[in-house]
């Protein structure tokens, strides 16, 4: 290289470049220019709506006209706390959420373990896609498919019939099965990710120290995978809590979601008050999950 390096002056100022330079000198302005639209949208549309919902829960419903009257009252909260119907529905829903979570852990663990520690990398990738893709298949359609499968003339009873058995699928037990099905992938993926992060050397160390397979599992794998299980349970638990479509399709039993859905037309304030119940439960659950280290393993 023979030429003596000479610095070339920058090209002429353009409006775009002037704006860039302005942003460079005022990084806060640049930041808020980026944030303005998304923040405005979320605040106006979403948090605004949640605020309206909260307000609605404090309004009265005229007992005769069923019109919402804009006067503040705590009557709605009084109602959902005092009337047995609401309490029973809430506790039934929480029980269902717990049972669904347990079933999903039991079903998810073996396949997640297989993916993380036994399958070849290629099989593993295929399995991840195979589990991920049905997650996105329309959830209403999946619930509807189960209604068809569980009904009197459906696949299940056709299969049980030769053994002289019968299963009343359109029941709370059936709903438990459907919920377990619907949220299963949400449990498999976090557990898989959690197990995959355990270094093989841990397990080898345990085996090396004379740990039997079961000991290794109970003393090493399970504690390490526990936060991932809690992470998965956030989905299975919270999604069960607020659902109204699957219960409506499978059973006539009432759950939090179906009650809110059914009364929203004639008693919006009560529905609004009742909808704060799943919010409260979810918040408590998330706080506990955070304590258990679930967020780090997501």
């Amino acid at each position: 290289m023979t030429s003596v390096p000479v610095y070339e002056p920058p090209p002429q100022e353009s409006p775009g470049r002037r704006l860039s330079t302005f942003f460079y000198r005022h990084p806060r302005v640049r930041l808020w220019t980026l944030l303005a639209l998304p923040v405005a949208w979320l605040v106006l549309v979403y948090f605004g709506s949640l605020f309206v919902l909260l307000l609605s829960s404090l309004w009265e419903t005229d007992p005769f006209t069923r019109e919402v009257v804009h006067t503040f009252t705590l009557e709605n909260f009084q109602r959902i706390f005092e009337q047995d119907v609401y309490r029973n529905v809430a506790s039934r829903t929480v029980q269902m959420a717990v049972l669904v979570t347990i079933a999903d852990v039991v079903l998810a663990f073996p396949i997640a373990y297989y993916m993380a520690r036994v399958a070849s990398p290629r099989t593993r990738d295929i399995l991840v896609v195979l589990i991920l893709v049905p997650l996105w298949a329309n959830y209403l359609v999946k619930a509807y498919a189960w209604r068809t499968i569980l009904s009197e003339g459906g696949v299940i009873n056709w299969a049980l019939d030769p053994f002289g058995l019968h299963f009343d699928g359109l029941s709370t037990v059936g709903l438990w099965l459907v919920f377990t099905y619907l949220w299963l992938p949400f449990m498999i993926l976090p557990i898989y990710a959690g197990l995959e992060r355990i270094p093989t050397s841990f397990l080898e160390a345990s085996a090396d120290l004379g740990g039997r397979s079961f000991t290794t599992f109970a003393r090493v794998i399970l504690p390490l995978a526990f936060p991932a299980i809690v992470a998965g349970s956030i989905f299975t638990f919270c999604l069960t809590l607020g659902d109204y479509i699957a219960p409506g399709l499978i059973t006539s039993e009432q759950f939090i979601g179906t009650v809110i859905y059914n009364i929203r037309g004639e008693a919006l304030p009560t529905a609004a008050a009742f909808s704060l119940v799943p919010i409260a439960v979810v918040v408590v659950y998330l706080l506990v999950a955070r304590r258990l280290g679930a967020f780090e393993s997501l």
Binding site: P10, R17, S20, R25
Partner: peptide
């Protein structure tokens, strides 16, 4: 830089 104060210039305007 070479006698010019660049303290407030963005990287793309510095030699």
């Amino acid at each position: 830089l070479a006698g010019q104060d660049v303290s407030r210039l963005p990287p793309y305007d510095r030699p």
